[in-house]
């Protein structure tokens, strides 16, 4: 069976971009958690999670965003989320993530968002 989930890391104008591919469920969420933890512990707290190739997310995946956001913002960073497909976005939206996280259409918009509002204004 093909790898159901993978993370590609890149950098864009001083930001760390984690591009997710495949599905993020209770089985694969620990891998994502480890990736975010690695960046946080290294002091890289300006993150963009790029989701254009993410096909599915469950509450286990959402829990990773939730469990790091306070620390990351406390360290002066943020997690901007971009590229969500409509069926993935509906999950973020119904749980109220839109009010707590910066969710933007694509990577250039995420980079711009860091210029305009380094931490989401709530």
């Amino acid at each position: 069976m093909a790898n159901p989930f993978s993370i590609h890391k890149s950098e864009e104008q001083g930001l760390v971009v984690l591009s997710l591919e495949g599905y993020l469920d209770a089985h694969t969420a620990p891998e994502f958690e480890k990736a975010v933890e690695t960046e946080y512990e290294a002091g890289r707290v300006r993150l963009v999670v790029e989701c254009s190739r993410l096909t599915y997310i469950s509450s286990a995946g959402l829990g990773v965003f939730m469990s790091f956001i306070d620390e990351i913002r406390g360290a002066g960073g943020d997690i901007k989320i971009c590229g969500l497909a409509p069926k993935v976005f509906q999950v973020f939206d119904i749980l109220g993530f839109s009010a707590l996280f910066d969710i933007v259409p694509d990577l250039p918009a995420a980079v711009q968002r860091y210029e305009d509002a380094p931490v989401k204004e709530t």
């Binding site: 469950s58 509450s59 286990a60 959402l62 829990g63 939730m66 469990s67 999950v91 119904i94 749980l95």
Partner: peptide
């Protein structure tokens, strides 16, 4: 993160 699944 508990309770999210039930809410969904």
């Amino acid at each position: 993160t508990g309770g999210l699944g039930m809410r969904l």
